[in-house]
Amino acid sequence: MYKIAVLGPYDSIYGFATLGLDIFPIQDAKSGAQVFRQVAGGDYAVIYITESLAEEFADEIEKYKGQLLPSIILIPGISQNTGKGVENVKKCVEQAVGSDIIFGEK
């Protein structure tokens, strides 16, 4: 059975544990990339990762973009947000429904 993981600074992700998701608190980019590789190679179908952490090892994440699993989803953290998480979700919705549901069709 597949699982869901959440990676990022502890303050940004600890609440996900109450939902039953596996959390992986990350302190720095080097250890974050290592944990990400372990999680991505495991039984996780979905990996949520904070925007700021994802920027630290974007090239590592890029390797998984063409694969079906795991699905990597950027989420905003408590601080240092870039807006990429919201933009990514918006892009996925546009692909799924054929139009931008927030701002109408383009």
Rank of each mutant, 00 (worst) to 15 (best):
V39N: 05
E55L: 06
F24T: 03
S71W: 13
Y48T: 08
R37F: 02
L74Y: 04
F57W: 09
F24L: 11
A54S: 05
G20D: 02
G8W: 00
V93P: 01
G32E: 01
V97T: 15
Y2Q: 12
A29G: 10
E51H: 07
Q27P: 05
Y2P: 15
I72Q: 11
Y64S: 13
A33M: 02
A96N: 11
S99T: 13
D43W: 05
C92A: 12
V39A: 04
T82R: 05
D22P: 00
F57H: 10
D11T: 06
D100L: 14
D28R: 07
K91E: 08
V93T: 08
I75R: 10
G32M: 03
I61S: 03
N88G: 01
S31I: 06
D59N: 09
P25S: 08
E60W: 07
K63M: 13
L21N: 03
G98W: 13
D28S: 03
I61D: 00
V89L: 06
G85V: 00
K106N: 00
E60Q: 04
D28A: 07
A17F: 05
G104K: 02
L69I: 11
F16D: 06
I73F: 08
D28P: 00
A5Q: 00
Q34N: 15
S12L: 08
A58Q: 15
F103Y: 09
A54Y: 07
V97E: 07
V97Y: 13
A29V: 14
T18D: 04
V39W: 01
V6I: 07
N81S: 02
Y14A: 05
